[in-house]
Design a protein around this nucleic acid. Structure first.
Lengths: 219, 219
DNA sequence: ATTATCTATAGATCTATAGATAATGC
DNA sequence: ATTATCTATAGATCTATAGATAATGC
């Protein structure tokens, strides 16, 4: 409980010292290694030795920055998800129809299996519990579902079931598409979005229309 | 590669020897321990020592029956899934409407979170890959979807997407309901089944009707 | 002089096997 | 005599820390 001592990052008011920059570089190297391992091996079950080798820092250095492996991977995951959340916000900035905002979220996230497999791998890793915990993307999906209901575009007995099913479908798609990339493509992502819109209570006709509108680029 | 030597189970034609029964009892104890650990801890990440302690057999005995931990857990999982598959077959024996057969499968499987949490835990553990691999329950769901399409009850661009989304929703529900049993009940299981029927292309009206028919008991 | 990093290692697992013991077969 | 089980342990990890070395601050 004493590791990772509290440190004021440079004297207050002073420019960050060279020491602080070096320390930050090392921390970034560790988080970068964790991200690479998550993306390439799809697991957090590696030794600290392997992490520090990948980061190209000494073994003991790990404990200068993190107390446990879980703490490092948590930081790495948070970073990836925050980056993707910001990208999604940017892509949806111009949209107003809640059904379309929900749908773009589904279509773009499903496309990650092909466009950003490293991000997709992280989502599969964090799993359904993450969405349910009300974190970033889960909270976003729930918000879109509630707005869609308020706007009368969705008809749904229970909004929490909308969240569970949406998260389940998207994560299942990512997991299978990551392992069998040749069997899935953008059409499948759009098909799934259309299915989900029907599931939330839209007519087949509206679902079809919304799910195939032009999609903003991933920033 | 030499462990678990091949053994003829008693002389051909002869009754099983006492030795064989003893051996079988020990094997059952190991598989039983694996099932209990899966159900109670929800993980296969335990030491062989803990497994043999739970089974109340000597440590080395493990290697008389299995070469690796994975092999034991695979046998335990197969056993649980075969038992549940048989129960589901029995429950559906009288049904003829493919949409209802699909729907009963979803409703009963979702109910496992409350009625048979040990089975639900195993399903969550095997995950989406299992369904995709065409094993028992996944093959069953795909068959029901195909029959539903052939009968004109489902309208779906791609049957494989029906499988991925069904598996994703059911497993996500089980995972969340196992961890938060107070927040989910039978109504939620039926709501999800209704949502899935809409997703597969049924009208809201038909989906509502099919998803609330009386449900056979779990044998 | 202080702080971060690196090297080396003690201690805590865990797996796989060898050899001893107990149960069954003939 | 044969087969299954059990006990004990060697060898292979892996984590956490102590102490040495290198970099920066004043």
């Amino acid at each position: 409980m004493t590791a990772v001592a509290e440190r004021a990052p440079a004297a207050a008011g002073g420019a960050p010292r060279r020491t602080d920059r070096r320390r930050e570089r090392t921390r970034r190297a560790l988080i970068g290694a964790a991200r690479r391992i998550l993306a390439e091996q799809g697991t957090t079950d590696v030794s600290i030795q392997e992490i520090t080798d990948t980061a190209d820092v000494g073994f003991g250095t790990f404990y200068n920055h993190f107390e446990t492996k879980a703490e490092l991977f948590e930081a790495a995951v948070r970073e990836v998800l925050e980056e993707y959340g910001a990208a999604l916000d940017e892509a949806c900035a111009e949209l107003t129809d809640p059904a379309e905002i929900y749908c773009v979220g589904v279509r773009m996230t499903a496309r990650l299996a092909h466009l950003r497999p490293a991000v997709a791998q992280v989502l599969v890793q964090v799993g359904v519990d993450y969405a349910w915990a009300g974190e970033g993307l889960g909270a976003r999906a729930l918000r879109d579902i509630q707005r869609g209901m308020a706007a009368g575009r969705f008809t749904l007995a229970d909004e929490k079931m909308g969240l569970v099913t949406t998260a389940g479908c998207v994560l299942a798609y990512l997991q299978v598409a990551l392992e069998h990339p040749d069997e899935f493509g953008e059409d499948d992502a759009d098909t799934m979005a259309e299915m989900l819109l029907r599931m939330l209570g839209m007519t087949a006709r509206s679902a079809q229309a919304v799910a195939h509108r032009p999609l903003p680029d991933l920033p």
